[in-house]
């Protein structure tokens, strides 16, 4: 069970985290970001955000930005920037790995996590 620390972090090992199920909370398109375009470019970029949580309280909360890329006529979402979360990964001795390493490990996890279908489905509604 996740335990909330007084500083707002939920501390756990990456192995414990990988055993949890993350469920979709919100996704949306950025409505107030300039559409990316360059001189002579014909393309525009759609960007947005997606939020995921673990079950129960306290909940692990992770959110990240994405943008749409098109390849072979098919829209695909790719994660951009760095995710925000209330997670602090710890080592086997319970020592904090720090925000930078936690974020880097979350990005690695995101590369294995299938979030695109649910997000695309939500923003398409």
């Amino acid at each position: 069970m996740a335990i909330l620390s007084r500083d707002g972090y939920i501390r756990l090992t990456v192995e414990s985290f990988q055993q949890l199920e993350m469920v979709h909370l919100f996704s949306g398109i950025d409505e107030d970001r300039p559409i990316a375009s360059g001189v002579g470019a014909n393309s525009s970029t759609i960007t947005g955000y997606t939020e995921w949580v673990s079950h129960g309280t306290p909940a692990i909360s992770i959110g990240w930005d994405w943008e749409v890329t098109g390849a072979q006529g098919k829209a695909r979402l790719i994660q951009t920037g760095t995710p925000g979360s209330n997670l602090m990964f710890v080592d086997q001795h319970g020592q904090d790995l720090g925000p930078a390493q936690t974020t880097a490990m979350l990005v690695d996890w995101l590369n294995t996590f299938h979030w695109q279908t649910e997000t695309l489905s939500t923003i398409s509604r």
Partner: peptide, 28 residues
């Protein structure tokens, strides 16, 4: 507002969320 998190990070402030976002009066 949720969008502030991205901007805090981009500006280099050390910040983390205290829990999941919620929708209140249409605003996340």
């Amino acid at each position: 507002p949720l969008g502030i998190e991205r901007l805090l990070r981009n500006a280099g402030f050390k910040a983390h969320r205290a829990g999941p976002p919620m929708r209140v009066d249409g605003h996340l």
